[in-house]
Nucleic acid binder design. Structure first.
Lengths: 228, 228
DNA sequence: GCTTGCCTTATGTCTGGACTTATGGCTATT
DNA sequence: AATAGCCATAAGTCCAGACATAAGGCAAGC
């Protein structure tokens, strides 16, 4: 008599792990499992939904629930906020605005934000420091239309936090990659050009309006990790 | 009268975005929202639970649900399976086992798998190719205790897929970073030493027994991306 | 043989009700 | 003033039942 959805989740996972239900196989219907475990179907549903979210099983209406054969594991990772990330290391956070100008973004950025090619955006370079040591170089294109006039003073509040506090957003995308440090990045982060940098790129939109596109270059040693 | 949990999720998100409920503020209780939207509390619960999972709100018993002030966004990303990843690019997948020996792992790996330091593991190097071009270099330590005797022939089936098909697992962790190519990696991937590589490291356990630790070095151009 | 459409079935969702559990804050005690 | 205990509250969970929806499979029609 298992009556918590989490117990059911664990039991189902167990059977999958122990190959009672091997990869690719169909597992009993929610109805049947509810009967077996002596609980309501909703409870089984909750358990299986959770397993589907982590990629252990795949569910389709009518087709039923089957054990994922090539388990494309899904991991949820916390997108770090730089200030918190640095604070979590027990270091003092600071930042330095290195440049700020209105300019036409390169086509790649304009395309990514789905903007007309000639639109000028606010281009900002910020260096984020931990205990005074450069840690992350930020290259950002910001849609000035969403800012109040006059513009906020980005030397005293970081763009990051201004946006977090003042502009909600609905959608966005994020990408991670590794790239060799450009001369600019190398100079800012105090590295040899060509050093391996961990790059985070993200674009955010609020409804239809593009807000910002940002590229973060993390100094060597940076790791993004999570459990799965 | 909103009656689908997704509609409620959208509406709540809207109010957060439009700052009706600003960051850090407490939003009405499930009860109250259910009343307002004319639906059952369970439906509101589902919607808010979903928002909590994406990091938009934070929930605590008794304390209520509040809008995340520094929105540590959570993104779920699909951990790619190399074969599928390459197939998705429309390229032909192949692999080459480059080395295989029983050896004592370096302390870092042993520690990560929580093994006695002197335990010997099967050390495997595999190169994964897309249309014959080297794409990913894999450096893996595998617990031989979980293998049948004689060992499977890893030249004909990739370790990856052998494990996926034959060893379920419960827990694991994964980390992403950027590192300069070692001479070995550079040679395998046909690059200059020092080139920026995207590194995926993961460890997996089945219950108490460690299974494997693997480090994947992705050739330049690799991107890991997701929506948020 | 091939297509179209119905029927059945498994999951998806919703309801209204109940009970559980964690916990913030008040109160009474030391 | 500090602390311990209680209580009200808000989320967490569960249930039994209902309807919605997607989709596999079968059958009728072409």
């Amino acid at each position: 008599m298992l009556q918590s959805w989490d117990a059911i989740r664990a039991e189902v996972l167990n059977r999958i792990r122990s190959r009672v239900w091997p990869p690719g196989s169909l597992i009993p219907s929610e109805e049947a499992l509810a009967q077996e475990f002596g609980c309501a179907r909703a409870t089984v549903n909750r358990a299986l939904r959770e397993l589907a979210a982590t990629g252990v099983v795949e569910r389709k209406r009518k087709a039923g629930t089957r054990v994922a054969s090539l388990p494309v594991r899904k991991a949820t990772l916390d997108i770090p906020v730089i200030r918190q990330d640095i604070a979590a290391q027990g270091k003092r956070y600071s930042f330095r605005l290195m440049g700020q100008e209105l300019a036409v973004p390169p086509p790649r950025v304009a395309a990514r934000l789905s903007l007309a090619t000639a639109t000028k955006l606010l281009h900002l370079q910020t260096l984020h420091l931990a205990d005074g040591q450069p840690q992350v170089y930020e290259d950002r294109w910001l849609n000035p239309a969403i800012l109040p006039t006059p513009n906020p003073d980005f030397t005293s509040i970081s763009v990051n936090e201004y946006l977090a506090a003042n502009v909600g957003y609905t959608t966005g995308d994020i990408a991670f990659s590794a790239e060799a440090a450009t001369p600019i990045e190398a100079a800012a982060l105090n590295l040899q050009p060509g050093a391996a940098l961990f790059i985070t790129e993200r674009g955010t939109w609020s409804l239809d309006a593009p807000i910002t596109w940002v590229r973060l270059s993390h100094a060597p040693g940076y790791r993004l990790q999570t459990l799965l």
